[in-house]
Computed example of a mutant assay.
Amino acid sequence: MPKEVLSILSEPAPDMDTDSSFLQYLVVDFETTGIDAKGNSILSMGG
């Protein structure tokens, strides 16, 4: 896993009342053949 992703994942989750303009985001989009993780496949990913 890239060090940038590990850095984001190692941070504690923000409080629910934190203003979203103060947060960093990592957005990943998956296109799949279905929703069954064991029976379907990832077709593409984007971020």
Rank of each mutant, 00 (worst) to 15 (best):
I35P: 00
L43A: 06
P12N: 06
L6K: 06
A37R: 10
L23A: 09
I35N: 05
V27K: 02
D36M: 01
L23E: 12
D17N: 03
G47V: 06
L43Y: 04
F22E: 12
I8C: 07
M45D: 01
S20F: 15
M16N: 12
E31L: 11
K3Q: 09
I8R: 08
S44K: 03
E11H: 15
D29Y: 05
G34L: 03
L23F: 04
P12W: 06
Q24H: 13
D19H: 14
K38A: 14
S10F: 15
D29C: 07
F22R: 06
E4L: 05
D17E: 09
G47P: 01
I8D: 04
L26E: 11
T33H: 11
S21W: 09
Q24F: 07
K3T: 15
T18H: 01
S41T: 06
I35M: 03
D15G: 07
I8N: 02
V28C: 13
S20D: 03
E11Q: 12
I8A: 10
S21L: 08
P14Q: 02
P14T: 05
L23I: 06
M1W: 13
S44Q: 00
M45P: 00
D17M: 05
L23P: 01
F22W: 12
S10K: 15
P14M: 02
L26K: 07
E11G: 10
L6N: 15
S20N: 05
Y25E: 00
S41Q: 02
T18C: 01
D29F: 09
K38N: 12
F22T: 11
S20P: 09
P2R: 11
S10A: 15
M1N: 11
M1K: 04
I42H: 00
M45A: 05
E31Q: 13
S41D: 02
F22K: 13
V27Q: 02
V27D: 03
V27T: 13
N40V: 04
L9C: 13
T18G: 04
V27E: 10
V27W: 08
L26S: 15
P12V: 12
V27A: 07
L6E: 10
S10C: 14
D36R: 02
N40P: 03
K3D: 06
P14C: 09
L23D: 00
V27H: 06
E4D: 07
S44V: 01
E31N: 14
P14E: 05
F22P: 11
I42S: 00
P12L: 08
E11P: 06
K3V: 07
G46A: 04
S21M: 14
M1E: 11
I42C: 02
